[in-house]
């Protein structure tokens, strides 16, 4: 018999970041904890950036994923402390990011296409709150860089 908590955790592995669908919210470090309550489960999440517009979507995706997992009442708590950091992104997450064409957070970003380092910064603010726009100095490819924070 799989416990309620295990069912919840299993179901949550399918919830992805809507803006970076290559990564699950667990890979991203957005999912902080899943615990059992008297009547169901409590899911604790934290935003990457204060204004991340994906948080509402993520909450609703968590509810949908858990709706079919028979876990009882779902409570979602958003916490701000400790503040999210790119350090919480695991190796697997970094590998998937690079494979999807986004340079993972590091002090020394490299082009996800040709792996050359020392790209040129176009803008520290990209298409989402968490990304910057860079251009590879070697192959000329413009690419997104997940900002270190």
């Amino acid at each position: 018999m799989v416990s309620r908590l295990e069912r919840a955790r299993q179901a949550l592995t399918s919830v992805v970041d809507p803006e970076i669908p290559a990564l699950s919210i667990e890979d991203m470090g957005i999912l902080r904890a899943t615990t059992e309550t008297a009547t169901g489960v409590k899911v604790t999440i934290t935003p990457t950036y204060s204004g991340c517009p994906a948080m509402g979507q993520i909450e609703s995706d968590i509810r949908s994923a858990l709706a079919t997992a028979d876990v009882g009442e779902v409570e979602i708590e958003t916490v701000y402390s400790p503040a999210w950091t790119t350090d919480w992104m695991n190796e697997e997450a970094r590998r998937k990011l690079e494979a999807s064409g986004i340079a993972p957070p590091t002090s020394n970003p490299r082009c996800p296409r040709c792996l050359a380092t020392e790209p040129r910064t176009v803008s520290e603010f990209g298409s989402t709150a968490c990304k910057a726009l860079l251009v590879c100095s070697a192959c000329g490819e413009p690419f997104h860089y997940f900002k270190e924070i």
Binding site: Y49, G51, E124, F125, A129, L133
Partner: peptide, 20 residues
């Protein structure tokens, strides 16, 4: 274009801070 996006991004950060 890049600056338009940057200004929107910065505004979004402030909006998120305001909401919290």
């Amino acid at each position: 274009l890049e600056e338009d996006i940057a200004l929107g991004n910065i505004g979004l950060d402030h909006l998120g801070q305001a909401r919290s």
